[in-house]
Amino acid sequence: MKFGILVNEGPYTHEASDSALQFTRAALAKGHEVTRVFFYHDGVNNGTRLGVPPQDDRNITREWSSLAKEHELDLVVCIAAAQRRGLLDADEAKRHGKDADNIAEGFRISGLGQLIEVAIQADRLMVFGD
């Protein structure tokens, strides 16, 4: 079965991203396909590589990145929500004249259409939020 995952909240403040990670791992372990993970609202903050959580805590961004690498997951950060909140890749940083980008490995920035597309293509859309 194909799952689409929507993450509406950033890391740490809410459990949403942790729940989405656990669900995604469990779905993959059962042999399901996770077609795309879409990060919206403050969820885009899961995609910053500049977070430095304490060493005895999980690094949610790194966990998403490594899961993506292992399973070729498509991690998509909403461009409109990302621009509002200062999450940029190299192209976006250049386009807006910013002096740095901060997107983490394995994430890409794209439009809201990617959310609608996965909702149509996947068999189930799982929403994790506040």
Binding site: Y40, G111, L112, G113, L115, I120
Partner: peptide, 13 residues
């Protein structure tokens, strides 16, 4: 607001 943005973008589909 951001839900409405999804609806407006999604309409194209």
């Amino acid at each position: 607001l951001e839900s409405l943005e999804v609806v407006l973008i999604g309409a194209a589909f």
